[in-house]
Computed example of a mutant assay.
Amino acid sequence: MTDEIFPNGWDQPLKQIATAHQWQDLIALKQAADQYYCDYGDLLTPSRTNLYRALELTAFTEVKVVLLGQDPYPSGDKATGLAFSVGQTTHWRRDSLAAIADLLASDGYGELTSGDLSPWAQQGVLLLNLRLTHRNTAAGHTKTVDRTLNWPLLTRLMIRALNERTAPVAFILWGKDAITMEKYIHASQHLLVRASHPSQMSRRRTLFKGKVSAFDRSQSFQQVNAWLQHMDQPLIDWTGSMAK
């Protein structure tokens, strides 16, 4: 039996979709990430223990929805290894999470009472950042994008593996970076929901000359649950306040 590379049953679908060379690159990526945390752990978010948390909480076979983020929060008390999610903190309603909470309310799901989105992950929502690490400088200034590790190799292969899956998946792509991944999602059984990013700068703007809805008007959560209902799948309880 070979050693596990990525947790919770992700190795097999990744190995099936990857070329032999890409699989060796994934092994090298895992090793490089381990060394990266040895060298720069104090500057990196999330913590080493949370690096693969999105995969740990949502197995390949359990994915019903994929929600793509960009990269982790630069602040260690916010970065949890889950896209858009923060830890159990009182002052969570700001920036993207504020927009997400507002959209949930306008979509009719009540009030989001916590910035910890791990209950979504436990229902089959893969909260995946396109890049799994964020690196701060020693002076405390943040870098916008950490390109040290080839995380896009992993995340692209994850999306391609899910696209090849017979069981349908709803893909939520918020913002230009996430929307670039739609070229890997073409199987007819899946749902694509696209909108601008929920950041304060983008939430009210359309993208691509109006072809992609502004986040605030996207009804993303309504679209996903309506599709799940049509597919005779359990709905996602987005806030814990949905009628049972």
Rank of each mutant, 00 (worst) to 15 (best):
S220P: 09
L228V: 10
G240R: 10
W238E: 10
W227G: 10
D216K: 13
F215C: 01
A226M: 07
W227H: 11
Q219R: 15
S218T: 05
S213Y: 06
A214D: 03
A214T: 04
S220A: 15
Q219H: 15
S218R: 05
P234S: 06
Q219M: 10
W238R: 03
M231F: 04
Q222L: 14
T239N: 06
H230I: 01
D216H: 10
S220Q: 09
F221W: 06
S213R: 13
M242Q: 15
A226Y: 05
V224Y: 12
S218E: 04
V224A: 11
M231L: 04
I236R: 00
S220W: 11
P234L: 00
S218F: 08
L228I: 01
S241W: 08
D216R: 11
W238I: 01
A243N: 14
F215K: 07
L235P: 11
W227Q: 04
L228F: 04
S241P: 03
H230S: 12
W238H: 11
M231R: 15
Q229M: 12
A214Y: 05
V224I: 09
Q219G: 10
Q223E: 10
R217D: 12
F215R: 06
S220N: 09
D232K: 13
M242H: 02
R217I: 05
H230L: 13
V224D: 11
W227D: 08
W238S: 01
L228N: 02
V224R: 04
Q223A: 14
A226T: 15
D216V: 12
V212M: 04
S220Y: 03
A243V: 02
R217A: 14
Q223C: 03
W227M: 10
A243W: 02
V212T: 14
H230M: 09
D232N: 15
M242P: 00
Q219S: 12
G240F: 06
S241V: 06
A226C: 03
A214K: 07
I236W: 08
D216I: 12
Q219D: 14
S220M: 13
T239D: 02
H230V: 06
V212I: 15
